[in-house]
């Protein structure tokens, strides 16, 4: 009994837990993990970046030829005034988007 008083019971309990830890048999577990893995070859980082860059450049070229940039650029106002109501509205929109994102993050299983 004297030894019991000197030893931290938690150390004793966990020492026994470590020494007697059971081997959890893989069984169906490993097979189910492998079955659930995404199929198809995964791209390397540089390949992913190269494809993204190529499509971005192609998109820019298409946009340059087909999009009436010059005509639309004249429609952009040279100056505009932010009223208190506009500022309030923008703040409300940002708040709503942030609130929605927070709610989605809290309820999402991802």
């Amino acid at each position: 009994m004297s030894t019991r008083n000197n030893i931290d019971p938690l150390d004793t309990i966990f020492a026994r837990a470590r020494s007697t830890e059971p081997y959890v048999v893989a069984g169906e577990f490993s097979a189910s993990v492998i079955k659930a893995l995404p199929k198809g070859r995964r791209l390397m980082d540089w390949q992913d970046a190269a494809i993204t860059l190529a499509f971005t450049v192609a998109g820019c070229i298409l946009a340059y030829w087909f999009f009436p940039v010059e005509r639309l650029s004249h429609l952009v106002p040279n100056q505009f005034v932010i009223t208190p109501m506009m500022l309030l509205g923008m703040t409300g929109c940002v708040g709503a988007v942030c609130g929605g994102a927070y709610w989605a993050a809290e309820t999402s299983k991802l």
């Binding site: 081997y23 959890v24 048999v25 893989a26 577990f29 490993s30 993990v33 492998i34």
Partner: peptide, 9 residues
């Protein structure tokens, strides 16, 4: 699968 086998338990 080998990594799973090693660490699953």
């Amino acid at each position: 699968a080998e990594l799973v086998k090693r660490y699953q338990s």
